[in-house]
Design a protein around this nucleic acid. Sequence first.
DNA 1: ACCTAAGCGAGACGGTACGTCTGGTCTTGGC
DNA 2: GCCAAGACCAGACGTACCGTCTCGCTTAGGT
Lengths: 202, 202, 202, 202
Amino acid sequence: MRSAPGGRPRDEKLHRAILQTTYDLVLQVGFRAVSVESIAATAGVSKATIYRRWPNKAAVVMDAFTDRVGSGSLFPKAQSATESIRLQMRAMARSFRGDDGALVRALLAEAQFDPELARAFRERWTMPRRKLGIAVVEEAIRQGEMSADIDPADVIDILYGPIYYRLQMGTGALSNAYVDRIFRRAMKGLGGKDRASRDCPP
Amino acid sequence: MRSAPGGRPRDEKLHRAILQTTYDLVLQVGFRAVSVESIAATAGVSKATIYRRWPNKAAVVMDAFTDRVGSGSLFPKAQSATESIRLQMRAMARSFRGDDGALVRALLAEAQFDPELARAFRERWTMPRRKLGIAVVEEAIRQGEMSADIDPADVIDILYGPIYYRLQMGTGALSNAYVDRIFRRAMKGLGGKDRASRDCPP
Amino acid sequence: MRSAPGGRPRDEKLHRAILQTTYDLVLQVGFRAVSVESIAATAGVSKATIYRRWPNKAAVVMDAFTDRVGSGSLFPKAQSATESIRLQMRAMARSFRGDDGALVRALLAEAQFDPELARAFRERWTMPRRKLGIAVVEEAIRQGEMSADIDPADVIDILYGPIYYRLQMGTGALSNAYVDRIFRRAMKGLGGKDRASRDCPP
Amino acid sequence: MRSAPGGRPRDEKLHRAILQTTYDLVLQVGFRAVSVESIAATAGVSKATIYRRWPNKAAVVMDAFTDRVGSGSLFPKAQSATESIRLQMRAMARSFRGDDGALVRALLAEAQFDPELARAFRERWTMPRRKLGIAVVEEAIRQGEMSADIDPADVIDILYGPIYYRLQMGTGALSNAYVDRIFRRAMKGLGGKDRASRDCPP
DNA sequence: ACCTAAGCGAGACGGTACGTCTGGTCTTGGC
DNA sequence: GCCAAGACCAGACGTACCGTCTCGCTTAGGT
């Protein structure tokens, strides 16, 4: 078994510089207006260096983004699991109101045209968050805060679907009030007075 | 006010031919791969003719799409208002599984980069459906099928958010089963024990 | 029978501007250092406009060159046909000492790597001159100034071959004295005193 | 004389391997299509190793070429000095019809853009051959086969100029017949009537 | 029956970015 | 200290679309 055959290693400083530049550029002028050429020029790097490391602009931006946001401790401690979820929803909405919102919108949009990016977005943004969320939901179920007969993944969809929906549709602000309303309503259910008789078709 | 001094009127056949060609092309090769040039060439029309009528590709595709789907009779008759909503959710999921899904994904994605398209998408796709949906929700409330203290718009977000979420995230299939699960769970609420006894007695 | 189907005609001013710019650039910085990009930038023209009209840099330079030199009245009037040839050889040598020399060297060199350019060079530079030269040689033969049993094409090769040779090899200056020497010697023949007996192998 | 101060000596095997690879590659795909990278890759050598030994591609090819052809025994023995020249012209034409022709064309062409290569080509190809040729011409003059009042260098130009001319212009094949015609005509001179009676009596 | 404004096809144009390629230099770690 | 490997900067390549424009031709209305 012979050792690796040599060759100059990639320059990690460059990596960081490119991602930083990319992040800044995207926020300044928007995803569409950023080009690989502008990233290269701004970062003082040749285009080839970028294409050696990423297949296209979207991949660079994806990296620049996930480098930033990480996948860290997302669910704040709270009195209960459900309360932790509510706070996390608020935190996500808040971040969507800022720079992250623009990036998530752009990346999620671009992913609709680029299967590889879609995969990356799912693996590096969506799924880590879903997994954390599902764990908290399971805890909530264990604590009896949520029904036992529930699929945790559905809970995530019901609670977070509306947030992404507003982010993209622009039907209204992603305010804390909105988040709280959605949360409360989803917890209580939409059904009316005598709902028991109706919402359980045989 | 002077009268129009003559001039040749727009050719309506062309309009239809262009939209038809556009629709077909987008389905064949995808939104990204379609260019105004390819539409013009395929439709046997000059680029100028297209740019005389639409500001850019997205607008043409938007027209081609809404021309097709209309905003017609969306909520099927059913035993109850809530049941009508459920059936409509199923219908939307079904259409999202087909060609419409690809188009809605592409248009919604593109709209993230194009405020004008975003406006058009909202006005011609999102809002008509929301309005119909809200009306049905209001009817449901009147009938006591849904709580009186609810914002109908939130109901729409909670029920449809998850559908768009899956459409774009690709976290799972938009099956009827999924739709039913989301619907039932949203109606019942996510909350646990203390309400479980009322929800679905064995 | 309908007329040509329209379309915007090429802008002739642009054509001239591009060729002029190209010519100037090549003389300033040399063939190799000129790029299509620099031509476009200097001429205030987009790259696409150049590529719409020529397949590559060499073709532009070829055009720029032949546009300049034309294929005009090359053989000056003189007392005799042979004298006309000598004067033309001097004229060519003189032009090779100037800008044309650099261009002919570059184009002939580039043509060694580009069959299409080679064809163009032959058709637009070499052959027109050869044809004129051959006609004058034929006149010389008619006038008894040159042997009757001679292939005029060989005469051109013998007289002009050395000029191109010096142009490219750099073995010496293309002076009038050199041209005259080559001309006189070629006319008289290389053979010595008793050459008749030797240079006609049976 | 100081001893070598340590350090690893250059690997001569590598040198030969690189030149061999280069030669083969150039013949296979042509001078233009060969890059230093392709030579390095094919020879299993790093680019740096090549750039450590030669300044650029042309220099490598130049070496690969002269390594092959040498400057060896060029003028065959013959009955007379002039006949030796004729046979050498044939030999050169034959070699130009083969692989060497392609290489000489490419190198001479490239030399038009690269003064250093031009110098090398002159010193290692052109001048050795010219010197040998001039010596033979001087011998021919001593033997009375050529005029005494002649510059041997001009003889070389007149006889070999046409061969290079055809090699590059592509105005016709470099056949033995062509060579013989040029040789005979140059020996006899192009001039007409008054000398015709002396030249080749029937 | 004109007349005239506009529609139309064709396609040239200035721009801009793409992703690829090569040239020549430099760096790392093994031998 | 040479080597293979290969990262790096620089910058041209030729292509593809964009959205605008100009050119002549055609075609309906208004008079």
